[in-house]
């Protein structure tokens, strides 16, 4: 490893440490709040509800809003999938040269598409008067950060000379993630579980109906 690589990898590691601390802080502060569980006798199934929340409940064909906003929905799915893939990719980057060429090309292309879709996110946010009104500086900063992060993930997959830049950006992104808008990445799972538990228990979430 060169000095530059060592320093930038160090920045990524510091970012990861802040990320972990931030995640622990968020989880702990959430756990300190009370949880009022449903206690009434069940009508449906909480377990089935959670399963529904992570499957049919997310399926675009079963969601009126996704059918209306299918471009935004599809964009969101592609970008978020890309961001999740960057996690194992980031861990694997010190051994990037050992990665099979076709996989690297695929990742470079996929992350590149995600970065482009990140830019599309900017224009969508600016184009819609409602979104423009309510968007915060944090929204734009977070979107920009993730877009550059994905662009550098793409560049580094294409050429290892971009690794130091990718690691620096990774450090910044990881350090910011638990404190700004990006923290929705962890609450997403909680939210789906709550929806599944509550409405599954009440028998509201149907796989099919009469």
């Amino acid at each position: 490893m060169t000095v530059l690589q060592t320093v930038t990898a160090g920045i990524a590691l510091v970012g990861a440490a802040i990320f972990l601390a931030g995640v622990i802080y968020n989880i702990t502060s959430g756990q300190l709040r009370r949880y009022q569980a449903e206690k009434a006798p069940i009508k449906g199934s909480p377990a089935q509800g959670v399963l529904w929340a992570f499957s049919l409940g997310l399926a675009p064909w079963a969601k009126e809003s996704a059918r209306i906003h299918w471009v935004a929905y599809l964009r969101g799915v592609i970008v978020h999938l890309g961001i999740f893939i960057t996690a194992p990719y980031l861990i694997a980057t010190p051994w990037l040269e050992l990665m099979p060429e076709p996989l690297r090309i695929f990742l470079a292309a996929y992350f590149g598409i995600c970065a482009l879709l990140g830019l599309v996110g900017f224009s969508m946010r600016r184009a819609d008067p409602g979104l423009r009104l309510l968007s915060t500086p944090d929204d734009y900063f977070s979107l920009g950060l993730v877009t550059v992060f994905l662009a550098l993930a793409s560049a580094s997959a294409a050429s290892t000379q971009f690794l130091p830049a990718f690691w620096v950006l990774s450090g910044i992104t990881l350090a910011y993630a638990p404190f700004g808008k990006i923290k929705h990445f962890m609450y997403f799972f909680y939210e789906r579980v709550f929806v599944g538990l509550v409405f599954g228990r009440r028998g509201t979430l149907e796989w099919k109906h009469e």
């Binding site: 968020n26 409602g130 979104l131 709550f194």
Partner: peptide
């Protein structure tokens, strides 16, 4: 916890 999650999750996507 349930309300806190709802408060923290929205990204103002407009969907």
């Amino acid at each position: 916890r349930r309300v806190m999650t709802a408060l923290e999750t929205c990204v103002r996507c407009g969907i």
